[in-house]
């Protein structure tokens, strides 16, 4: 894929850093967000090393999605520092942060329902196309080459996500599981180094979620991705994540390997307290 090239264009130094393992791709310190009087997130610290796959779990309303919205620049933090790929991204608009290499999916699917599957993915390439309207009007080389490249890469992504035969259909006509896959494909089009997945298997059946797990593992290796994922399906999280962070009431109550989390009394308490089953039980109620 051309994401290496895009990265080089964006900033050459961190492009090299990325290849080093243990490079801290994301570091968050004392992040806090309040809505009026409600402290949705407070005192949130997180460090992600390049290539890690980390789970973010917690009961409903714990502030997980809010963390994603803060990281991607959709909400301005009340306080705290977010450094991504060595840049202080605090206060940057979401599209800039996406350019730096952070992409996301949404808890409630947010595809461009009217647009075709193919065009949804192509929108993800937005910041990697560089031609003006004049170029397009005159069908100049910049336009033709750029569009040909976008079409080719879109084709590759659609193949990878087994959506190639649906390319011309409007996104809203896809079955639920395929819409979830398309959201990830679209996020990948932005050429991310960090992928934020908000409940990627919500509403999927066992076999669909097993397929998605295999796909995520593959993406991680092929695209050298770092991932942070929110999921209510505890079995899924335990299987795929190397490290888990547990959020409750906007604060981190535990963090560690899946085994450590399973046996952590504070975590069990948080889940039992909110009426769910224990994380080890695997059957947490999904939000839908």
């Amino acid at each position: 894929m051309g994401d290496k090239q895009a990265v080089e264009e964006a900033e050459s130094t961190s492009g090299r850093d990325r290849l080093k393992r243990d490079f801290e791709i994301l570091s968050v310190e004392k992040l806090a967000k309040s809505f009026g009087g409600l402290r949705a997130v407070s005192d949130f610290d997180l460090e992600l090393k390049a290539g890690e796959l980390v789970g973010l779990i917690g009961p409903n309303g714990a502030g997980k999605t809010t963390v994603f919205n803060l990281l991607t620049g959709f909400y301005k933090p009340t306080s705290g520092v977010i450094r991504f790929a060595g840049y202080d991204v605090h206060g940057m608009p979401p599209h800039r942060i996406t350019e730096y290499g952070m992409a996301r999916t949404f808890q409630n699917i947010r595809l461009f329902g009217d647009m075709t599957v193919e065009d949804n993915v192509k929108v993800g390439f937005h910041h990697r196309t560089c031609y003006g309207i004049a170029d397009a009007l005159l069908r100049r080389r910049a336009f033709r080459d750029s569009e040909a490249e976008v079409a080719q890469k879109t084709g590759e992504l659609l193949d990878l996500f087994s959506l190639a035969d649906k390319r011309g259909e409007p996104a809203r006509s896809l079955p639920y599981g395929e819409q979830r896959r398309l959201e990830i494909a679209r996020a990948m089009a932005a050429g991310p180094r960090l992928l934020l997945l908000d409940e990627p298997v919500a509403g999927m059946n066992r076999s669909e979620s097993r397929d998605l797990m295999a796909l995520l593992r593959r993406l991680r290796v092929e695209f050298d991705l770092t991932m942070l994922l929110i999921e209510h399906d505890i079995k899924f999280v335990m299987d795929i994540c190397e490290r888990i962070v547990v959020l409750d009431g906007g604060e981190i109550i535990a963090s560690g390997s899946p085994a450590e989390i399973c046996s952590n009394p504070a975590v069990i308490e948080a889940y039992l307290g909110s009426g769910g089953s224990t994380p080890g039980g695997g059957g947490m109620n999904a939000s839908r």
Partner: peptide
């Protein structure tokens, strides 16, 4: 279609 969602795609 979705003015907020589009930002996250780098638009």
């Amino acid at each position: 279609y979705d003015i907020e969602g589009a930002q996250f795609m780098g638009v």
